[in-house]
Design a protein around this nucleic acid. Structure first.
Length: 859
RNA sequence: GCCUGAGUGGCGGAAUGGUAGACGCAGGGGAUUCAAAAUCCCCCGAUGGCAACAUCGUGUGGGUUCGAGUCCCACCUUAGGCACCA
């Protein structure tokens, strides 16, 4: 008997699948289709355990669907544009293209040994000219459909490197490379009109039944629908054109508590004022040096600048409020101007306290009398911000009842203001338009041309693709496209005069917003092919990390709609992902000690050992602190390399272990002992199979019991696979393997059971399954064999064991024929020793018999 | 503060309202072996008891039920998200 040799087996069967073209997706009318997709990776150059888990989950589904008679589409590609390639080029020379394609080759060579059932014929990278050329065509169609436009927007600008910085490249307000103070600078940029779809993207979430509720909630919050009042304050002595300033508020009921007006440093009025007032200019410049993320704005100290101008309160024109420019107000939200009500907003409260502005309460708690209201409020040292659904007592209300909820008061205030001609109720969304311009080289060029005479002109479709030039260097600051004369200079597609290309490229989220559609026809001369898209779309099961819950998935949903409008996807694909599954992370313990200065030192798993129940360093014997279940991270030295695992145990072990220990949606901890145990188990299955081949035991009375267990295993494992309960399927496989190993059944029954075991294991450990299948003379490839069906009649036992409870506590059990009459069960139960003892001659108060389940005696 | 989840042995985790802890890891004992590796068998929530067995036990406190890990109410802890403000 030979030993289980994973490396030999795995290479052999991968070759066999490849030669038979088992995983080539083919369209045919005689079979239903199934499209399973895992989020494609960034080509970092190395696969990690997260990939192994993610792609193995998809693979189990794909292989299962293949064996249940589906045409399966299970493709793979690379999300290949983006900054890391440029960073690498800047750091160590070379070209982003070479770096990227080198990494892709490297990763493919690491992925293939995992034995995933991928249709590699469909592979592409988003940096392939064929792909981004079609993306440019899509962009032009969207431009024509009015889904793209240009406007000014603020970016992080590094004045030394003369470049735009991503948020993560700004550290403490300084450029990560130059160390220069980062400015916020306005550039003209391209935007997708995703905000036009805010309401639809929100309401359609309700139709996504097979999406995690969590993701839907996150998207709903992100879209952020709100109902409020938009109205204008009239100004006093303001510059021309600023007679009125529009504000938006979700709390119009607090209008009588207004104490100041705040405008964004980017508000037109602020910009007007800073031209003549150096102090205001300095303040605004200071604000613009802050980062552009909301988080940074929130964390920053709240600062304001009194413009000296005032506005009149809409209900009392003699009441004037000062106008402040404030650093926490974003031009992109609402109208870029607010009124502050310090009594009922914590941020306004702090602002008013800082600048000595009045704090007038509008309402108090419902349990406070109106007379004592002002007194009550004076004792408070923070804003009173109850839930909108809570009833409060209005003391400066102007409509509705004195006692009402915030929601009721807001509605009443909107109605009242509309009647008075002071503004109108509007619905606003937090979701902003999607800025897609990136001032970078390694991305999809935006296919437009700037002509002096014609303005911004779309490139002609026949001139696509607009290819990235290869002859660029990164030794000089700035975007190489900007200083590439022969690429940048071109002829206007409209008038033919000399013109300049757009040198901005697209956000990489654009690339990943339609790749799933491209997989249905990856080599088509148009973005998609109608027949293929009609057949393969939608993605039946999408699998990926929760970190993409908002942006990627929301953008993809928008793109699917845009592609429908522009004729690239059918109506049914407006929601492109029928089911979504978000898998947990792969974690690993961290081994930590401290150096002489108290700084943490992280040790590789190989450097530690367990001695006398303590984890110590092999070298010095020093005790090590074990931090369990931390995300794998290079800096913490707790990364497990899939290649090393394949080398030691084989891909089947890695695949099985990644699914065995935790439910798929939760994090799983990689442990060396767990991997070892998996390998031992697979070796055991291998031994059982090789033993079964030559087993000459005659058929006997144990056969039926074994086959019964076999059918139960079919039933349970299948149920697990269909419900994403891979860990449950694996538990059943362990159980069935134990039964099989101990069975005294005849050789034929054992061989049959072993073949079924191999089939049930085949989605998880496909190589070992093929080997056993071949060993036992299975026809063809197990990958192409029909999934076994459980015989329902074999799932029912002839006898059942019923627990006997006394007052709800288990006190014994009886074994009875399955169909025994209830009365007979009662009789047997009452005769049970423990029951007799408990009753002590008395009659039971109550006797509950749940057929086939339980007996409960109440005494 | 709000919205989602989660909380069960030493650990990962099972349990359509019906025998809590399946299955795996770790641990203990035994068989085999000159010895070891590998393999096989048995035990393994806590407390008491030689044992049979008894009592307790699913974050906390209540409740519904013949019966609650599961359903309801309140709370605690924890992870993720939002930072409702525009």
């Amino acid at each position: 008997m030979s030993r289980y040799s994973a490396n030999e087996i795995e290479a052999k069967w991968q070759k066999a699948w490849d030669e038979a073209g088992v995983f080539t997706a083919e369209r045919s009318d005689d079979k239903p289709k199934y499209y399973v997709l895992e989020m494609f990776p960034y080509p970092s150059g190395r696969i990690h355990m997260g990939h192994v888990r993610n792609y193995t989950m998809g693979d189990v589904i794909a292989r299962y669907k293949l064996s249940t008679g589906h045409n399966v589409l299970h493709p793979m590609g690379f999300d290949a544009f983006g900054m890391p390639a440029e960073n690498a080029a800047m750091k160590s020379g070379g070209h982003p293209k070479d770096w990227t394609y080198g990494n892709i080759d490297e990763m493919v060579s690491q992925m293939k040994p995992m034995g995933w059932s991928l249709d590699w014929n469909r592979m592409f990278a988003t940096c392939d000219v064929e792909y981004y050329g079609q993306q440019q065509a899509l962009f032009l169609d969207m431009l024509e459909a009015g889904l793209v436009y240009r406007k000014n927007a603020v970016v992080n600008w590094d004045p030394v490197d003369m470049t735009v910085l991503a948020n993560e490249q700004v550290e403490n307000g300084r450029g990560w490379r130059s160390g220069a103070l980062v400015e916020r600078r306005e550039l003209t940029q391209w935007f997708f009109k995703i905000s036009d779809y805010s309401d639809e993207l929100l309401s359609a979430l309700d139709t996504l039944d097979n999406w995690p509720a969590k993701v839907k909630t996150m998207q709903a919050n992100w879209i952020g629908k709100s109902r409020g009042l938009q109205f204008a304050f009239s100004t006093v002595d303001a510059p021309d054109g600023f007679d009125r300033i529009e504000v938006y508020t979700t709390r119009p009921d607090t209008l009588m508590g207004a104490s100041f007006m705040g405008i964004s440093p980017d508000h037109p009025l602020a910009k007007q004022l800073e031209q003549t007032n150096p102090e205001i200019a300095a303040f605004c410049a200071d604000c613009r040096r802050m980062g552009t993320t909301e988080e940074e704005l929130e964390k920053a100290e709240k600062k304001g600048f009194d413009t000296g101008l005032t506005v009149r309160h809409p209900f009392d024109t003699s009441w004037e409020l000062p106008i402040y420019i404030a650093n926490f107000i974003l031009m992109d939200y609402g109208t870029g101007a607010i009124f502050g009500c310090p009594a009922h907003d914590q941020r306004d409260f702090e602002f008013a306290t800082k600048y000595g502005l009045p704090i007038a309460p509008v309402f108090v708690s419902a349990d406070v009398e109106a007379d004592g209201a002002d007194e009550y409020f004076k004792q408070k040292e923070e804003a009173l911000v109850p839930m909108k659904s809570e009833k409060v007592r209005y003391i400066r209300g102007f409509c509705g009842a004195e006692l009402q909820t915030g929601e009721e008061a807001v509605d009443a205030a909107v109605t009242f203001c509309e009647e008075q001609g002071v503004g109108q109720g509007v619905t606003k969304f937090r979701l902003r338009d999607w800025g897609l311009s990136r001032q970078r080289y390694w991305g999809c060029p935006i296919p437009v041309v700037n002509c002096e005479a014609c303005g911004v002109v779309p490139e002609k479709k026949e001139n696509l693709p607009v290819k990235l030039p290869d002859d660029v260097t990164f030794d000089v600051p700035g975007n190489p496209l900007d200083r590439h004369p022969t690429w940048r200079n071109c002829d206007c597609p409209s008038c033919g005069a000399p013109a300049r290309r757009e040198t901005d490229t697209m956000d990489t989220f654009v690339d990943s917003s339609w790749y799933f559609a491209r997989f249905t026809a990856p080599r088509a001369g148009t973005p998609t092919d109608a027949t293929e898209a009609e057949y393969w779309m939608n993605v039946d099961q999408y699998i990926g990390g929760i970190e993409h819950a908002i942006l990627h998935l929301l953008y993809s949903r928008f793109f699917a709609r845009a592609m429908n409008i522009t004729g690239h996807l059918p109506e049914k694909s407006k929601e492109p992902f029928n089911a979504l599954f978000t898998q947990g992370m792969v974690t690993h313990a961290i081994y930590k000690t401290e150096d002489a200065d108290g700084r943490p030192v992280y040790h590789y798993p190989e450097e530690v050992e367990t001695k006398d129940g303590k984890v110590v360093l092999k070298d010095t014997g020093a005790e090590v602190e074990v931090v369990p279940s931390a995300k794998m991270s290079k800096s913490k030295n707790n990364v497990v390399d899939p290649l090393a695992i394949i080398d030691t145990y084989g891909a089947d072990t890695a695949r099985w272990f990644m699914l065995s220990d935790s439910p798929p949606e939760r994090d799983v901890e990689w442990t060396a002992s767990g991997a070892e145990a998996t390998y031992k188990h697979l070796s055991r299955v291998w031994r059982i199979a090789t033993d079964a081949v030559a087993d000459e035991t005659a058929a006997n009375d144990q056969d039926k019991a074994l086959l019964r267990e076999m059918h139960k295993a079919i039933h349970d494992v299948t149920a697990g696979v269909e419900s994403f309960g891979f860990n449950a399927s694996i538990a059943k496989l362990y159980g069935f393997t134990n039964t099989l190993a101990k069975s005294k059944a005849g050789g034929d029954a054992k061989r049959e059971a072993t073949k079924i075991l191999a089939q049930l294991m085949s989605p998880i450990t496909p190589h070992l399954a093929e080997e056993i299948w071949a060993l036992l003379g299975g026809a063809g490839l197990i990958a192409q064999a029909d999934w076994p069906q459980a015989d329902e009649s074999m799932l029912v036992e002839d006898e059942v064991t019923l627990p006997i409870q006394i007052n709800g506590k288990r006190r014994g059990e009886i074994t009875v024929p399955k169909d025994l009459a209830k009365e007979e069960v009662e009789k047997l139960a009452l005769a049970h020793e423990a029951v007799v003892r408990a009753l002590d001659g008395n009659a039971p108060k109550k006797l509950i018999v749940v057929p086939g389940r339980i007996v409960n005696v109440v005494v």
